[in-house]
């Protein structure tokens, strides 16, 4: 068990788990639950992403592997959870940021088709991999071309979803009337940009050896953390009724 993989995954799990738990357990409007409110897709994305990271923890991974008909099927399930989380998030953000381009890409037939293609390709690459023993994120077999393709497929899908969202998120980080809103959208835009960057620089990653490879993985963790913290800031603003308190009377000069 390499601490360079276990520690970041554990930290991400703590961050995601706590923020998702907080979001789900915070009533939106007194009676309304986060899973029933307008931002339910975000709560669902949080749950799926938390499960994806949970499955990557070695003890959990090994336990679930015992139930799998396919060696390293747990990795496949973890990636499926991550894809579904990204799909939920992309669809919801495309509506929130009012981006018709992102909506066309992520929601409806094109989004479902892309998700189906990537999910099938992930299964195909796993079947093509010679991986006799369980290995979270298939790290023990990272040199095999099928595993490299498997990893790139996930990165490419994330890039496909986030690419049309970067511009609207950046624009909101400039024009949102709330400081917390600008910061939140700035973090989301930065997180998306990092994800996109990693997908495009994947060939560079293939040449890396030793512990350097983990640095590239950390880019994805950081980008996820940025997006998750950005969304948590919006949740904080909503819970504290920041728009109502900060933008009280339009006449006030105080």
């Amino acid at each position: 068990m390499n601490p360079l993989t276990v520690v970041p995954v554990s930290l991400m799990l703590i961050l995601l788990g706590s923020l998702t738990f907080k979001r789900i357990n915070t009533p939106v409007l007194g009676h309304q639950h986060a899973l029933q409110g307008k931002a339910r897709s975000i709560a669902l994305a949080g749950i799926f992403l938390t499960l994806a990271y949970l499955l990557l923890l070695p003890p959990v991974y090994m336990g679930v592997e015992l139930l799998m008909p396919l060696t390293n099927g747990t990795d496949l399930i973890s990636k499926y959870f991550a894809l579904v989380a990204v799909a939920f998030l992309g669809g919801h953000l495309s509506v929130a940021y009012g981006s018709p381009l992102a909506r066309r890409w992520t929601v409806g037939a094109p989004g479902a088709a892309m998700l189906g293609i990537v999910a099938t390709a992930l299964l195909g690459t796993l079947l093509a991999t010679d991986a006799p023993n369980p290995s979270p994120q298939l790290l023990d077999y990272a040199s095999q071309p099928s595993v490299r393709l498997n990893t790139w497929l996930v990165l490419a899908y994330v890039a496909y979803i986030v690419f049309p969202l970067i511009r609207p998120a950046y624009k909101d980080s400039r024009k949102n009337p709330l400081r917390v809103g600008r910061l939140a959208s700035g973090l989301i835009a930065a997180g998306f940009a990092l994800s996109l960057m990693r997908a495009f620089t994947y060939p560079v990653e293939l040449g890396a050896t030793g512990d350097v490879t983990y640095l590239f993985m950390i880019v994805s963790y950081v980008s996820t953390a940025f997006v998750v913290i950005g969304l948590a800031l919006f949740a904080y603003a909503r819970k504290n009724r920041t728009p109502q308190t900060e933008l009280r009377s339009a006449l006030s000069i105080d």
Binding site: I42, P177, R238, P243
Partner: peptide, 14 residues
């Protein structure tokens, strides 16, 4: 309009 926009964004993303 600015306030309505801020409320919409926090409602949708929060």
């Amino acid at each position: 309009e600015a306030r309505e926009y801020a409320e919409k964004m926090t409602e949708l993303l929060g």
